[in-house]
Amino acid sequence: MKSWRDKAIQTILVGAASTSILIVLLIFFFLGREAFPFIWEPGFSNLFQARWIPVSFKEEVFGLLPLVTGSLLVTGLATVLMVPFGVFGAIYIAELATEKERSFLKPFIEILAGIPSVVIGFFGLVVLSPIIKNFFGLNTGLTALTGAILLALMAVPTVITVSEDAIQSVPKAFREASLALGANNLQTIFRIIVPAALPGMIAAIMLGVGRVIGETMAVLMVTGNAAKLTLDPFSSVRTMTATIAAEMGEVAFGSHHYQALFWVGIFLLIMTFFLNVIAQRVLRKYQMR
């Protein structure tokens, strides 16, 4: 007996909400559609070679390995940098900062989150890379480390915000019980609050890592873009994201190179998909307390 108007509205709302599902399916479909022919010609196994030489007069090689190691190297370094800054930052803002500091620090972190990656990349290019070059005595400042520092800077707001939420959601009773037993503020923070908030903090770091893997412009601008199979932080590397951004503009649509770039996109999508879903699972599970 609902009026037709209410029914129509509900249908519209369901439709709108379902577009998200549609978009996700379309993303997978269209990435797959462009990438798929590569499986037969020149063959799927080509993607697992150790060299990426997409443009050559002799023989083109589409091995994703150097790109994957490039991404992993930069991501690993960035994670090492991002964890202490993110976790300590969150602890400081949630537990140690005065009310005044907090009201300045929180918006500041949000502003950092909003700075476009191309601007961070630009800063890395003109300010950070000369510093890296001179400090370590390198031929070029465009290294994996340079990219990692910038990426850590970009992921820190995510880690801080989500970790802080996790800390805030630790029940007051825990803190009171600890203080009532004569523990001081720091003991309470490190023995009670941080352990209780740990799952949330781990999820925060995973979300940060997801952001780092998918980040494009900053790494494109400062990592030197050499597709080398290396784990040296001072070497130039080329990440998966940067490869797509740099080469997609110049390939012939439908070529093997074009298809290989879509494969890079698919691998990226799968990696970030799992990181995100697991992190959200963890967050939801521990929010229920």
Partner: peptide
């Protein structure tokens, strides 16, 4: 549940992959 999963997924898709998708579609 599917809608929420989709939103989480969308939020994590790297921006360059959105670019690929936009190019393809």
């Amino acid at each position: 549940r599917y809608i929420r999963l989709a939103i989480i997924t969308l939020a994590g898709v790297p921006s360059i992959v959105f670019g690929l998708f936009g190019l393809g579609l």
